[in-house]
């Protein structure tokens, strides 16, 4: 009886540590670049850039919860954006008012195309992993190549530029002063948190990740649960693709490659155990906030983007070391 309680406390301790980290980074950056860091513009721009990465990190966390990983999220995100872009260009022309002032219906169809792409691609991953029992690293490594490859063949290389205004609203717009991407992230994060914490499906994912054999013997339909897991990660990735192409008004087969590492980093830093069984949406969101503040502060201090990447890598290793130290056998 004590175990679940202790477990809940352990997750809270981790979350508390993360919140402290956020405050620490915030204080540090405020002290180092006081005039620029606290400007509303800087903080608001984070609410536009962070959500796409946050969705990818949540997807990564969900896959890791079952003991797997999804390395194809970037490929799925780009493929979804490109297919929607090709649809818009076929429907409204490649430029001009026919494209820009497209009605709500075709824009909705574009969103449906992108999300459907994510769900189908995720189902393909799920079938490879649950039916053919390919290990998730290799299955998603290979399928990610195929998705990126399809995007490359469809576009021939260059970016698809020019999306309808309704589409770019999703990436750049604001409702009541709040960035639309942030609203999308909060809505989906809330939905995933409910799914994981309050439904039988969510509990079964944690059980599969904790002990796959026991999950089978307990009568869980592990294959179906794994399939649905990757359908879910594919769907989340495709929404990230909508936000990315909406924000930049373009879609390309090799956009956002560095997001892969960052998504893994945020998931792990957020307290997700890559071996499965432990992870929470709240942890991912706080970790996302910590890293976005850090990156933004470093950019204001004129650190090159490469150094920011290096610091993210060091952060990943440091969070591993910290976790190992905290859970060391005593």
């Amino acid at each position: 009886m004590l175990k679940p309680i202790r477990r809940a406390l352990a997750i809270d301790a981790n979350l508390l540590q993360l919140v402290l980290l956020v405050l620490l980074i915030f204080a540090l950056m405020t002290a180092l670049v006081p005039d620029k860091f606290l400007r509303p513009y800087n903080l608001i721009s984070i609410t536009y850039i962070a959500p796409e990465l946050g969705l990818l990190a949540i997807a990564m966390m969900v896959a890791m919860l079952t003991g797997g990983i999804d390395l194809s999220v970037i490929g799925i995100a780009n493929l979804g954006g490109i297919l929607a872009g090709l649809f818009f260009h076929a429907y409204g022309g490649t430029r001009g008012s026919g494209l820009a002032a497209m009605g709500a219906l075709p824009v909705g169809a574009g969103i449906a195309i992108a999300v459907a792409t994510g769900l189908v691609a995720g189902a393909a991953n799920g079938l490879l992993i649950s039916r053919l029992r390919i290990t998730p690293i290799l299955a998603t490594l290979g399928s990610g190549q195929v998705f990126t490859g399809i995007a490359l063949v469809l576009t021939g290389g260059p970016a698809i530029v020019g999306f309808p205004d309704g589409w770019t609203m999703i990436g750049n717009g604001a409702i009541a002063g709040v960035a639309v991407p942030l609203l999308v992230l909060l809505a989906l994060a809330g939905a995933v948190a409910l799914l994981l914490g309050r439904t039988a499906f969510g509990i079964s994912l944690v059980l599969i990740g904790t002990n796959p054999k026991a999950a089978v013997f307990a009568g869980l339909r592990t294959r179906r649960a794994l399939l649905l897991t990757y359908v879910l990660t594919g769907g989340l990735a495709s929404v990230a693709g909508i936000l990315l192409s909406g924000r930049t008004n373009a879609a390309k087969s090799d956009y956002g490659i560095s997001y892969l590492l960052q998504a893994v980093l945020i998931a792990v830093l957020g307290g997700t155990d890559p071996a499965g069984g432990r992870g929470s949406v709240a942890g991912v969101i706080v970790a996302l906030l910590a890293l976005m503040l850090l990156a933004s502060g470093m950019q204001l201090m004129r650190f090159s983007n490469f150094l920011v990447d290096a610091v993210w890598g060091v952060f990943l290793l440091a969070s591993i070391a910290l976790n190992a130290w905290r859970t060391r056998p005593r």
Partner: peptide, 8 residues
């Protein structure tokens, strides 16, 4: 992690 750190 080491790949990102070294490359960056």
């Amino acid at each position: 992690g080491t790949a990102a750190a070294v490359r960056g």
